Simulated scan of single mutants.
Amino acid sequence: MQKTVCELFAGVGGFRLGLEKSSPEWNTVWFSQWEPNRTKQWAHDCYVAHWGDINKYTGVDISLVPKNSIPNHNLLVGGFPCQDYSVARPLPGSSGLEGKKGVLWWQIRDILVAKESPFVLLENVDRLLKSPASQRGRDFGVMLACLAVLGYSVEWRVINAAEYGAGQRRRRTFIFAYKNDTCYGRQLIDSPQQIIAETGFFATTFPVQCKEIFKQITLDYQDIPGLSSVFEFDFKNAGYMKDGVVSTTRVTPIQEEAIPLRALLEQDVTEKYYLGNKLEKWKFLKGPKKINRTSKDGHEYIFSEGGIAFPDSIDLPARTMLTSESSVNRSTHIIQDPQTKKLRFITPIEAERIQGFDDNWTNTGMPEKFRYFVMGNALVVPMVTRMARKLEEIIDNE
């Protein structure tokens, strides 16, 4: 089996870069990157600047892409948005499942139907396991049911990159699915508990301890609309599903030494990144506050929020970087430069280092604010490289 890859919602290529840093044998045969409501597709253009384009469909709305036009591949990867995955029964005269228009999970599902990818590795925010707030766990339950219908088993794990040696405290849900008729699927015959804690894809890549009781539930995956309307479940940070039987528990990482932000900083940073005379404004944004406000209907209330570190400690891994990093926002990193002892923002190169990209990866002509934006959307590249090594073993064994 060749190491051919389809990369969806590719951004500036975090999955591809992580795979290729593991081995040159990985061959990306197609990718898709399209940012809605933007005239200029900066992330797509950055991706193409590094690897070139593949065909006319890589930079358009994926819902417009004929799924059979996508080349065959053995690994499908992608970091997709956390959205409302509720589904309804088909209208009379129609067929198939339909979620809300624009929800990208259904594009993934349609590609899996058309291409029957043997292996799938997806990334999402950690709240996926608990959304929506009104019906906790429904969205992830719908995803698992869809995969069960298509003959996949699934492992998942919430991984904080800093707990496994990276330079950012970034928690993300990773999902590994594989066809039951693969060698890997046939040979993995351990109990769900062993797979989650010892022998599975994530357990052997990101070691854990497991001391909590396992919870189990069986999905009625033959009736996904019915499941969507009633399903609730408390998914934990690790789990396994086969033939609709879901096992989950909370695991504790066997932590490794993380990279402190100090080790990722540039030297001799130019003056434009310093706060200057805006110190008081940033103190207010970062500090605790209680503010009297009035809602649109005239209701008076007190808005309150706690303080956050100001400046950020450079002796710890960076906080989670968001797409708002370049804006005046309390989540923006402010550090004390170790050379000048003055407060400043992180630079675009430092943002790239925090995510594990090469220096100036995004310096491909896009405005500086978008360099921060695409890094806020990216994943931590070393986490992918680590998973890629296990994937190589699995695919070589096929």
Rank of each mutant, 00 (worst) to 15 (best):
L279C: 10
Q193Y: 00
Q194L: 07
E98T: 14
E256S: 12
F373M: 06
N74P: 00
S304W: 05
A145V: 02
T28A: 12
L75S: 07
G96E: 13
Y184W: 12
R171S: 15
I54Y: 05
L147K: 00
K130L: 12
Q41E: 11
K101S: 09
G307H: 10
N160K: 12
R38L: 11
F174A: 02
L122H: 07
E198F: 07
D126Q: 14
R157E: 07
A197N: 08
Y47G: 08
E398I: 07
G226H: 11
L391T: 08
W34Y: 15
G52K: 12
T173Q: 03
G376M: 07
M321Q: 13
S23L: 10
T4E: 12
W105Q: 07
N360E: 15
N292Q: 14
E393V: 13
Y164S: 06
M143A: 06
G102D: 11
G59H: 02
L144R: 00
L279G: 08
T320I: 06
D268Q: 14
D61K: 05
K56P: 01
Y85M: 12
S327M: 15
L147Q: 03
G185R: 08
A166K: 03
Q209F: 09
R319F: 06
I108S: 06
I394H: 01
I308G: 13
L316D: 15
L112D: 04
A351Y: 07
A238R: 02
T362F: 08
Y301L: 13
G307N: 10
E212R: 13
S326T: 01
H73F: 08
K3I: 01
Y372C: 08
R386A: 05
A309G: 12
A351Q: 09
G14P: 05
P311E: 02
K296Y: 10
W105N: 02
L279E: 14
V77Y: 11
T385C: 04
F303V: 01
E305I: 09
G14H: 01
K272N: 13
P311T: 02
R262G: 00
G307C: 11
F233S: 07
F31S: 04
T199M: 09
V328L: 13
S324R: 12
